[in-house]
Each structure stands twice: as C-alpha cells, then as structure tokens.
C-alpha cells in the first residue's frame, strides 16, 4: 500500500553561539523508512517535536520531502504517480484540518462529494450512511461553528470518510476528546481495518496504541528509534506496558544523543 524510503525533511532553526545568532539547517525527518500494508493500523509515536506531523504531512502530500521517496500503490498494486490521484486515495486528518465554519455538515460533505466527482444520488446516500454511523442526525444541518468539540471531530472524520479512501493518515485524532467520542473514533479505525483499509496514525495515548496498532514506529528527533508490533516492543524492552517500553526506548535514545 505505502512504502517510504529514506525520507528527509530539512528545516532551519536559529542557533545562538556566543553573541551571534545563526541559522542552521537540521533534519526534522531524518532518513525514515516505513511500510504499511493493506488492513494494517500503524502507530507513529514520539514526543512533541519529534517530527511526527512533518512526516505525516509529507505522506499526505502537503509537504514535499527534501530527499527520499514515497511510493503509494492502488488496489491493483500499481504505483500512483500523479499528485492529484494520490490525494484522492488518501484521507488526511490532523488538528489543523478544520472545516469551513460557515457551512453545515451536510453542505460541506456535499461539496466534498462534488470535488471527488461523485454523483448526486451517491452523495446523498453516503451522507445518510455517515450520519447514522456517527449518530449525527441532530446536528448535521447546523453550521459547523455552532458545534461542540466532539461533534466537530466526528464531522472531521466524516470528511475523511466521504471519498472512501484506501489510506487514512490521522494525526492525533483522539486528542482532547472524552472517552465516548474517542471510542467512536477507535471503533471507526477498527472497522476500516476490517474493510481492508490502511491506517497510519500518530497519538500520545499509549494504551490506545497498544490496543489497536498492528505495528508501531517510534520516532525521536526525526529518526526511527524502534519499530515492531506492540508485543514485540514490550518484550524487547522487558516492559509490561507500552508506556514503560516507550520510556525505556526514549531514555536510551536520548542517552545516545
């Protein structure tokens, strides 16, 4: 589905040496290789500023990598080259992908359906499906700026689902949600996995990752420091929970630096 080879992204930062400030290049994403297969949930974990968002942005075609290759394959395992076609195949969600506040959810989803070149009937059918899936009957016709956080997040998930993409890239989708709303989103991910979709997602909630991820990539300062299934990572670090494994892996990574 997705194969990433030696992906790099260079940024500039200001460094102070003595009295002088100087600009210096650094790699926010440093030679990252990863792979995601059909029907997998992949977790991307790491502390703040590790480069998770930059990595996911590049995978979502919002940023161009400084170096490296991203290969995306369709259902027939043919590579998709065209950037527009790539975007069609990806559902991208992050804390920064907000919805137009002056539209109602129904209007917004209709607009999306048109952009994805769906037929009018298809659009209406899809919206009804999504509305019942996320029980949004009560507020589907409200303007988005009038919705609560949980309602908005459900609407955002619907945005990704509208075009029925093959690959979901979700940047901290459960951030700041109550347990019930978070459960809706986790259930959605598990259901999509069943439907053979691939999900790549970053989170800070390790219990959640432990429960649903098939494989996990841990990133520190742009580099992948550990990868494998949650059980493998716990075994390798001799920990009982992913939380402890996380602490041990990062403790070691920081020491090495």
């Amino acid at each position: 589905m997705l194969k990433v080879v030696n992906l790099c992204k260079e940024f500039e930062k200001t460094v102070k040496t003595g009295r002088k400030t100087k600009k210096q290049e650094f790699l926010a994403v440093d030679h990252v290789c990863l792979e995601a297969k059909r029907g997998e949930i992949i977790g991307v974990l790491g502390p703040n500023g590790a480069g998770k968002t930059t990595l996911l942005r590049m995978l979502g075609n919002l940023m161009t990598p400084t170096e490296g290759e991203i290969h995306l394959y369709d259902k027939e395992e043919k590579e998709i080259e065209d950037i527009i076609k790539r975007k069609e195949a990806i559902g991208y969600l992050s804390g920064n992908t907000k919805l137009y506040p002056r539209f109602s959810i129904r209007e917004y989803l209709t607009f999306l359906g048109q952009v994805y070149k769906m037929e009018q009937q298809e659009i209406e059918k899809r919206i009804e499906e999504l509305v019942s899936m996320f029980s949004m009957e009560e507020f589907v016709d409200n303007r988005i700026d009038k919705l609560s956080t949980g309602q908005t997040q459900r609407a955002s998930i619907c945005r990704c689902l509208m075009s029925d993409p093959d690959l979901y890239i979700l940047d901290e989708p459960t951030l700041g949600l109550d347990i019930l709303s978070a459960d809706t989103i986790i259930n959605f991910m598990l259901e999509q996995k069943k439907a053979g979709k691939t999900i790549l997602y970053s989170t800070h909630y390790l219990e959640e990752a432990e429960a649903i991820c098939d494989r996990i990539y841990m990133i520190c300062q742009g580099k992948i420091v550990a990868q494998g299934s949650p059980s493998y990572l716990m075994e390798a670090t001799n920990s009982e929970t992913l939380r402890t494994a996380f602490r041990r892996i990062y403790g070691k990574a920081m020491e090495n630096n």
């Binding site: 919002l62 527009i84 920064n96 992908t97 907000k98 919805l99 999306l112 945005r159």
Partner: peptide
C-alpha cells in the same frame, strides 16, 4: 486563520 487551509490542501485539486 480558521485553520481550513490544510484541509483544502488535502483535496484532489491543483
């Protein structure tokens, strides 16, 4: 300002 730019960029539009 409203944070919808990134959403717009995810659309399959040039």
């Amino acid at each position: 300002e409203r944070g919808t730019l990134e959403t717009l960029l995810t659309l399959p539009v040039s």
